[in-house]
Simulated scan of single mutants.
Amino acid sequence: MTNISPSHIKRFLAAAGLALAIPLTVAANPGDHRQPGDCSGMEARAALGKRGGEMGPHYLRSLNLSEAQRDKVFEIKHGQAPLMRDKAKAQQKVEDDLRKLAAAPDYSEAKARTLGEAFGKSVAEMALARAKADRQIFEILTPEQRQQLAERKPGDDAPPRGRGGEGRTPPPAR
């Protein structure tokens, strides 16, 4: 029988613990290797408030808004938030009601049509509210900034895909 010293056992247990801890840590949070509190990409810019339009529509990002313009964009978006939240809650409720109706024993085409129309109305109201806010924001732009917007190609105003980065593709649909 071999004589194993306690120091060898301690080193073996430490190495085994480390060997198990690393893969378990990675498996617990795949794809996101940032430390807590670590900001990168859009999050860092939004936290610092350096870029015009980060909190507003994506098409404002390259227009170099003045601080006064950024403040006005913030006021417009902040003022719109409660309305949009209420509309989103109403839309979610109608969607849930429609889903419940589909599985209910008292399903009727008339009830489904009424709920479908209510859902369509809520979607339209949200789109109109966004258009109104976009128009208010457009009105605070200088003529030069409006010209820059007009000269953009149709795909130039698309928001970046993926979380926080250009060039990232969305995950495949399942």
Rank of each mutant, 00 (worst) to 15 (best):
K100W: 01
D134N: 13
Q69Y: 02
V123E: 07
Q80M: 15
H58A: 14
A127F: 03
K10F: 15
D134R: 05
K121L: 10
A15H: 03
G120E: 00
H58G: 10
D157N: 10
G56P: 05
A131K: 11
L60E: 06
E117L: 14
I137K: 07
S62G: 14
G49R: 12
L63P: 02
V26F: 15
L128P: 02
R130M: 12
I137D: 05
F74N: 11
F12H: 08
R135S: 13
A129C: 09
V94T: 12
A44K: 15
F12Q: 09
D32W: 02
L65W: 01
M126S: 13
G56F: 02
F138V: 00
E67N: 09
Q91H: 11
E95F: 12
E109V: 00
Q136Y: 01
G52A: 05
T2A: 13
I76G: 09
L65T: 04
R51K: 11
Q35T: 08
L60Y: 00
A158H: 02
A88T: 05
R99E: 12
L98Y: 04
Q80T: 08
D86M: 12
D157Y: 09
V123W: 01
E54F: 01
Q92L: 12
Q80R: 11
A118N: 11
G155Y: 10
G53R: 03
E67F: 06
P30G: 09
S108R: 03
A68R: 12
Q148E: 09
S40V: 13
G167T: 03
